[in-house]
């Protein structure tokens, strides 16, 4: 297959398989769920998804696990201190950068 055509097709495939899971439940579930179990299940879902997405994946998000641990600790600390999304992301990124820079000095 021609290279450009391959890229275009791949991008299209990715777009479709990204849209499907986003749109299906949203457009098909038109009513409020009655079951208390399901209501509760959906209530806890966001936190569970985010938790499982973050850890342990965060440990492998940078060049070395050491800098990742440092960035993770910084993010955790600042979040518990009540800081907003953006400062947490910035300080955590800065921490990773600093730790990796220090590691290169040795």
């Amino acid at each position: 297959m021609n290279q450009t055509l391959y890229w275009a097709a791949a991008v299209l495939v990715m777009a479709v398989v990204t849209y499907i899971p986003r749109v299906l439940p949203l457009s098909l579930m038109r009513k409020k769920v009655k079951s208390q179990f399901l209501q509760s299940f959906l209530y806890y879902m966001p936190y569970a998804v985010l938790g499982a997405m973050t850890f342990p994946a965060i440990l492998y998000a940078t060049a070395t696990p050491w800098s990742a641990v440092a960035g993770f600790a910084a993010a955790l600390l600042l979040s518990f201190a009540g800081l907003n999304l953006l400062p947490v992301a910035l300080v955590s990124t800065g921490t990773v950068f600093l730790v990796e820079w220090l590691m290169r000095l040795w």
Binding site: Y47, A61, T62, A63, L83, L85, T93, V96
Partner: peptide, 28 residues
């Protein structure tokens, strides 16, 4: 080195999102 550091930004955001409600509610 800068792009490596940026790799953590997404996860840091996840943490900032999930910690406050977890602090408030034990079941969460």
């Amino acid at each position: 080195s800068l792009s490596s550091a940026l790799g953590i930004a997404l996860y840091a955001m996840f943490i900032a999102i999930v910690v406050p409600p977890s602090k408030k509610s034990k079941p969460i």
